[in-house]
Design a protein around this nucleic acid. Structure first.
Lengths: 351, 351
DNA sequence: GTCAGGTGAGAGACCGATCTCACATGAATA
DNA sequence: TATTCATGTGAGATCGGTCTCTCACCTGAC
């Protein structure tokens, strides 16, 4: 160790070679001592531990990962971190993973299939151990199929995707929507509007299907003009709501397929001077804080958010540990939480 | 780390060696062709590109990172991803970073200094290029100081920390709190309660200071019994609110230091049958969706959230690119948004 | 006294990509 | 004709660990 760095020697990280040198053993012995495998003499082990401690040796995870073939990192690809639904799941996943000393890398696809593909390619190049993905598109996902084929542990959440042989966790969207719309019909509504976010996302399609099936079963025609497509943001939902409720024959009820849209609908209805439930009844998919703060509180279809993250991690870790079982898919039931945003359409007539 | 199953779960990935073999050149030439440096013949370059394309070569970022000395990853350590304030920042940071082809690794400290230290050690072992951290403690942060000394680019956000020589972005917490409390005083309040989350977090301490200074300036005594300490969760804030408002001489106004606490206070006051602003006036720090959905809407001190993420990334990238300027710290002003949750304390007297 | 087997430790291969260096060409220049 | 010089290419070192292989030593057994 001669002719080494000038004064600012603190810059270069401590490597196992440095530790070995100080402990006066070979790199191999130092590694054995630090990782506790193979034969190491008590004295040597002690010297190595001491040297590592003194030098502040931390190991280089990149080098380890290169040798081992992967990083102790799990990728999480939500549609949008800002959506409280995904934020909650990210939080739960993070906590679960920390227990097994893995890190979480979050990258949002912004609901863009192209961006999702890039992110997944990136994660793959990083050799992450596995991924939890909320696929941005329900159709045609060759990149997902290829990843699974290549052996990347993968758990899909929130949205079904046909033809990708991997574990998945979803919610009974069709049933939940059916129940919500059924509740509106039972309250006497027949002109029930829907705002959803395009049929590309499986979730939206299923909720749309539940809506349509319920109407049909009740002998109500599914009308184009009552169905608005909007991106899943508060702003777009405001526009969509205004469009729906500016029609001559106004809908008497509205069903929104996620919490951001429900928020947008609330704002739009308020700005149009329509009150809930006198003028319009409202049911939203996905429960959220705000729903209990409005007056009246909003009736919603609740999803078991708290269970999704932990289950996703469990499934993923099983795969990482080598489980070869056929793909499991868990579908959670939803629960209609009746609050005060639905009334009979004649309720407000006499105003 | 433990029990990780079979060594090789997937098929062997395509390496540059494979590409070189197919293109019938050496690894060196293949690398040159793919990365565009040094001299490469046109024909060879073409063959390499073609082979890479055909084999689906993706490069191994870990190997690159080992060679280069770091990962193209930025670490983000918020207090809690579920807090919309941090979720928003995470989202903005993610978008900014994607532009420079870096990934974002998010790991929440859960406001625990010990956990923060572990996370930072982990990130350091991963050789990330830089970090954006909302430090969990304002006092005594030797680990942060050491990181900066060792040359890790670091930007602290939301909270000041004394003695860490690095860039930081904060908000004028003291001034914002002062303005909020001043507004309550101007409306005739003298028994103004405060809920904050312990003095360990710098933000809380500053907001407390602003509260105290304003009272003192107005000749009002700062009373212990009007100040409640609570963790920053909705549930804890509910308890704290109930404690404050169960006292014989009830406060006439309440100031809460973050949006989760404001939410908790709203719930608690409602459950106690106290209405806003007739029975209690309320001002919260940090604007949030819910604040405009309540009736009346909540008066808040708004922070320029949208500016924090992009600025943090800009500062960090400057450092990563080698800027040696003295640490900058940006402190944003806050803005009091007056809505309907404050009234004169006598307003509700005649009820 | 020799040999098997347990124990301890070092040399060196390896992971995949990058980069330096040396070595070829062939053309242009002295 | 001899000598530069610009190009193109490959061998091999390197990054920091991990792990196999080999060897040396020591003990106890036959």
């Amino acid at each position: 160790m001669e002719g080494d760095g000038p004064p600012f020697a603190g810059k270069r990280a401590v490597t196992i070679k440095d530790v070995a040198a100080v402990a006066e053993v070979s790199r191999a012995t130092a590694a054995r001592a630090l990782n506790g495998y193979g034969y190491v003499g008590g004295a040597a082990a002690e010297r190595v531990r001491e040297a590592a401690e003194r030098l502040g040796y931390r190991g280089n995870r990149i080098a380890q990962a290169l040798r081992q073939g992967q990083m102790p990192i799990i990728g999480f690809v939500p549609g949008d971190i800002q959506n409280p639904f995904f934020a909650r799941i990210a939080h739960d996943v993070d906590i679960e993973l920390r227990r097994s000393r893995r890190s979480l890398l979050i990258a949002s696809s912004e609901e863009d299939p192209q961006q999702e593909r890039e992110i997944l390619d990136n994660l793959r190049a990083l050799n992450v151990r596995g991924m939890i993905v909320a696929p941005a598109s329900g159709e045609d996902n060759p990149h997902l199929v290829r990843m699974v084929r290549e052996g990347m542990p993968l758990v899909l959440i929130d949205r079904v995707v046909a033809g990708v042989p991997c574990d998945s966790i979803t919610v009974d969207n069709e049933g939940g929507a059916h129940e919500a719309v059924g509740y509106l019909v039972a309250n006497g509504h027949r002109r029930i509007a829907l705002i959803h976010d395009g049929s590309r996302i499986a979730t939206a399609r299923e909720r749309l299907a539940g809506y349509a099936r319920c109407l049909t079963e009740n002998g109500i025609a599914v009308e184009e003009r009552l169905i608005a497509v909007s991106q899943s943001t508060v702003e777009h939902a405001i526009d969509a709501t205004i469009r729906l409720f500016s029609q001559p024959e106004r809908p008497t009820a509205l069903f929104t397929v996620d919490s951001l849209m429900t928020t947008g609908a609330l704002l739009a209805l308020r700005s149009m001077g329509l009150s809930i439930p006198q003028d319009v009844s409202l049911v939203g998919f996905d429960d959220f804080d705000l729903a209990t703060f409005t007056d009246p509180q909003i009736t919603v279809v609740a999803q078991p958010v708290a269970q999704i993250g932990p289950l996703a991690v469990k499934m993923l870790l099983d795969r990482i540990r080598g489980s070869e079982e056929p793909p499991r898919s868990k579908r959670f039931a939803t629960r209609l939480i009746v609050r005060g945003s639905v009334a009979h359409p004649d309720f407000g007539r006499h105003r």
